[in-house]
Design a protein around this nucleic acid. Sequence first.
DNA 1: CTTATCGGTTAGTGATGACTTACGGTTAGT
DNA 2: ACTAACCGTAAGTCATCACTAACCGATAAG
Lengths: 98, 98
Amino acid sequence: MLADPTRRAILERIGHAPAAVGEIAAGLPVSRPAVSQHLKLLKEAGLVTETAAGTRRIYRIDPRGLGAMRDWLDQFWRTSLDNFAAYAEAQAKEEEKE
Amino acid sequence: MLADPTRRAILERIGHAPAAVGEIAAGLPVSRPAVSQHLKLLKEAGLVTETAAGTRRIYRIDPRGLGAMRDWLDQFWRTSLDNFAAYAEAQAKEEEKE
DNA sequence: CTTATCGGTTAGTGATGACTTACGGTTAGT
DNA sequence: ACTAACCGTAAGTCATCACTAACCGATAAG
């Protein structure tokens, strides 16, 4: 998902300020349909929302999706730290025996 | 990077407890060399550390790399929220004019 | 109604990358 | 030394995905 550089660029672009598809594509070395396809995936992933404004579609960051991803990583980070600490402690006791 | 399911599975595996390559591969539907290749990338990405133990190589989560990634996402999340709020406010003032 | 702008969709192509098989190197045990 | 266990690497294959070109629908302006 966030592996693609173009997709990250798009996210940072509309993370800075909401923008239409054409505007985003103008600042990137790819065509407009490519951006459109990325936005479709980002919308399905819940990272982006779309609002119609005339013929233009304004895309914005969806704080909920981004927050959820943050929470997930945060959770994983914490449990990993806990297990890391637990193992370090167990290791210390093991060496104490010898 | 974290786009690949196998890679996420490996991370969660050794996030739970340190493990050798063969042990990790045994719990996954892929071959041992595949796991080895993933671990190479994860090590280069700073998400994992390797320690030799006889013929076995024990892999662990590297809290620094994982924390860095967490911080990056956290930073991005916060600035996006700020810009989101700023635009909402500007929008409110704009409507106030009309 | 006609024209222009804006954007989503489809089909096809090229590149990236995940995987397996085969091989070689290193350490532990006998 | 010989054998076995464990692992990294190289080469090749196959699927996935990002991209472009072409097309069509919808809205705005004249």
